[in-house]
Design a binder for these strands. Structure first.
Length: 224
DNA sequence: AAAGGATACAACCGCCCCACA
DNA sequence: GTGTGGGGCGGTTGTATCCTT
């Protein structure tokens, strides 16, 4: 039986205070990242090591870019998601200053909704899998079902199968087997009819016109 | 102005991967 | 080859804030 990553008793949970943030920053500034399990004790924090790591990686690191995602960033996320699936760390790795958690949250709260509105299945980026007007489902708002996503086992074979060879290359890169990989990704989208949707994406701030809602594009949006 | 619903996002949980002994 | 521990990842939850009625 695996022992827990930390002694849960006596550890703080929930939002980080300014003092805790400062302690973590100060410690890492002096000692550097790593040894997360022993870090909390050494830094005088009553936190789980994982919690410290997450806080640092996602919010305290000096090179983190905060604020809204630019349109080109959003486009890139969509493209990379079509290529890689829910491999947020890989996607975030190609967005300088963005973290996997931030990309994941942005996908779930903004992009996924947007794609659904456009009649695109956010899971496979194909058209017509989703109705343009999803029927309301009587579930809790934060549940995955409310976003038309069924609960599934972690790293299902289905999910893995969806990942392309290119994704495998990215895995290789991460593990150091490939020194450098240029995907050659650009922000450009295919020409009509798919660019019609792209235009719509850019024009769709929040309100869809009835004309847009009635539109159904005949082919796959991003990748063929 | 108040209540309820919707949304955004910070944080936690638990599983998996990998290095190392 | 196997077991173990540390770190990383993706899924999920909790809650603060915003929006609508």
């Amino acid at each position: 039986m695996r022992k827990p990553c930390c002694d849960k008793q006596g550890t703080n949970k929930g939002a980080w205070s300014k003092q805790e943030d400062q302690k973590l920053i100060d410690y890492i500034r002096i000692h550097g990242e790593g040894c997360w399990r022993s870090l909390p004790k050494a830094a005088g924090l009553h936190r789980c090591g994982k919690s410290c790591r997450l806080r640092w990686i996602n919010y305290l690191r000096p090179d983190i870019k905060r604020g809204n995602f630019a349109q080109d960033e959003e486009d890139l996320i969509i493209k990379l998601h079509a290529l890689l699936g829910n491999r947020w760390s890989l996607i975030a790795g190609r967005l300088p200053g963005r973290t996997d958690n931030e990309v994941k949250n942005y996908w779930n709260s903004h992009i996924k909704r947007k794609l659904i509105k456009l009649g695109i299945d956010p899971n496979n980026h194909k058209l017509s899998q989703y109705p343009l007007r999803p029927q309301p489902q009587h579930v809790s708002p934060s549940s995955p079902a409310s976003l038309n996503v069924a609960r599934k086992p972690r790293r299902s074979s289905v999910d893995k199968d969806r990942v392309s060879d290119a994704a495998s290359c990215l895995d290789d890169e991460r593990s150091g087997r490939v020194s450098k990989l240029d995907l050659g990704l650009t922000i450009a989208f295919p020409t009509t009819p798919t660019n019609h949707i792209e235009e719509k994406q850019q024009n769709t701030a929040s309100i869809m016109t009835s004309e847009e809602e009635n539109y159904t594009a005949p082919t796959l949006l991003l990748f063929r």
